[in-house]
Design a protein around this nucleic acid. Structure first.
Lengths: 247, 247
DNA sequence: CGGTTTATTGATTCCCGTCAAGCAAGGTGG
DNA sequence: CCACCTTGCTTGACGGGAATCAATAAACCG
């Protein structure tokens, strides 16, 4: 077997993982539920956010922390997970620029149920629940967008539940890789590189499996030539075969 | 073994499973996101809804149908599920009076992803997506409540995902029974009766298992005296033991 | 270049899904 | 009210997919 190569990942980050004012402006205006607002309004909105840079592994908040803010990823990758009593993690989502997280329970939950952790150098925007609430009061259109985003997430969560409770690991991994490629895929000589740190363990946490079993599946995929992979990265070589596996 | 008794379920329904105007009024005003509105406003809201009675097994909509409405359960039980290519169902939720379903994707999904079916004699209120959208425009407070409800559902979906991907069937069943008891539990001589038709197969569909395996778990629970059960019904006798199983 | 983390692969075990037979509950109609 | 039939529940036997345990190897880091 030929040796695995050095990681080909090139996630865009600015040093020191903070983002310029106009990057923020562009992000809010193009990739979030504020997209519909005018430049002047965006400037006002923007002032409600503060930003923080995170190193890989840094926690943004942890399960049990008091809910205080809503977050938006500006740069990097953020992972959301829950931890079982046995210390096993279940990965709920991997987020990229423009995606929000944290609780937007306006009345609801007093404490976060999940944990948010940077998976790469990241810049994260933060707004207090209060201020966000005020923005929603002023811009009903934004509220509808948020509602829509929530609706999509709920659908996605239901689909995950469906998948995990009705398909064998091989199919779960295939579906998960395709979803990740959809979100983080970048064209490459041949195939699609999934632009995020992605270990066997991460995949196991997403598919309700174990690192060993995922490794076996991944190894088989690679033997067949369907994917190309190394430590913490995977590229899909043959999308159509995986799609067939995923039905 | 002593014989199982006749079903003790007594789900409240009016014949012919339609609901009176003032029941509708009370329901909307007390158990939904319209709770905050004044009686006058409620009357107006109420006029936007039409109602339909369903027999057990009747479909309210099916996966693939064009999204046109939002529904609210007035009476009875409604089950939401997805069906796999192999014909296996995955039960997403069991709903009682006051709970909404259908898509409220304001922009999003053109077709339902799941199927809604009456599980008992039911009365269901319906409002067109358009009119609901108009209501949201007029009452921002309602929109926030809806957002809140969605947020809770998303959390619940994530919890289900967590459970199914990290716990053995016995625990999954215990947790599921406790959740159902929370929602549909009615005090009974000893213990809590879960007031909804509930087959082994239903439980299997909720826990990502099979009717046979669920039956074995349930039988064991009964042998231990933790629950009492029969055809299509379950009553919890010892909540604390199940809670311990559920950690 | 050691030390650490991640990935691979094999051996073994076991939970649970599948198949199958028999039984109990409930509904129907004579 | 009791045969009869349908549907749901139980239980056993069996097999397989995947978890677990374990040892080695490759990639990365300072």
């Amino acid at each position: 077997m030929k040796p695995r190569r050095k990681t080909p990942l090139e996630i865009k980050t600015t040093e020191p993982h903070m983002c310029s004012v106009d990057l923020r402006q562009r992000l809010l205006g193009q990739q979030t539920f504020f997209a519909q607002l005018s430049p002047e309004e965006l400037i006002l909105i923007n002032q409600n956010f503060s930003e923080t840079g995170y190193e890989p592994e840094d926690f943004i908040y942890q399960a049990g922390d008091t809910v205080s803010s809503l977050f938006i990823v500006a740069e990097g990758r953020v992972k959301l997970f829950q931890t079982s009593a046995a210390g096993k993690n279940v990965l709920l989502d991997l987020l990229g620029p423009g995606e929000f997280f944290g609780s937007l329970a306006v009345l609801g939950t007093p404490a976060y149920l999940d944990t948010a952790q940077a998976q790469s150098h990241s810049c994260v925007l933060k707004i207090s629940s209060e201020n966000f609430r005020k923005i929603l009061d002023v811009y009903p259109g934004v509220t509808l967008k948020v509602l829509d985003a929530m609706s999509q997430r709920l659908n996605a969560a239901n689909d995950r539940f469906f998948l995990i409770s009705s398909a064998p690991v091989e199919k779960r991994v295939a579906v998960t890789l395709l979803k990740l490629a959809d979100k983080f895929g970048r064209k490459r000589k041949p195939g699609l590189l999934i632009e995020t740190p992605l270990s066997r363990e991460n995949l196991a946490e997403m598919t309700g499996s174990t690192p060993e079993t995922v490794s076996r599946v991944i190894s088989q995929f690679q033997r067949e030539g369907w994917i190309d992979t190394g430590r913490q990265w995977i590229a899909i070589q043959d999308v159509s075969v995986l799609q067939r596996l995923a039905e």
